[in-house]
Amino acid sequence: MGVDEQFYREYILDHYKNPRNFGHIEHPTYTHEEDNPLCGDVVGIDLLVKDGVVDDIKFHGRGCAISQASASLLTERIKGMSLDEARTIGKEDVLSELGIDISPARIKCALLSLKVLKAGAWGLGEWPGEEEE
């Protein structure tokens, strides 16, 4: 198996080609979309919250395999979580779930979906500077 297969692991390619929870929620509790103008990646997330629990989550977007697979993985992780628990997810969690060595140039791709959640869907308003690193 070559280096590229290791980087673009099977499950990342799988999430890219067959994204989970892809689409829109008709009456979401929260909805937010952001793009990364530097590479043209777009991710939008709809959340349906019931009794403090993420009852449903859907994302839409386009872009590189890293940004889209990362969004797909994030939705799988969050679905069914309490909102409080979901709020504690940080960039380290997202990166370790991807399980690959992300170069500095690609880190924004990997974290775009988390940014959408933090900056928009959870109403945090401000992105807490993860992209600086």
Partner: peptide
């Protein structure tokens, strides 16, 4: 294949290929 994924893969073959908007967003 998104250009960034392509760049990442060809980089692993030792090929330096630019991906992005090339500072020409209106053209993109």
């Amino acid at each position: 294949i998104h250009p960034h994924d392509l760049s990442t893969i060809v980089d692993r073959h030792g090929v330096a290929l630019r991906a992005g908007h090339h500072c020409a967003m209106p053209l993109m």
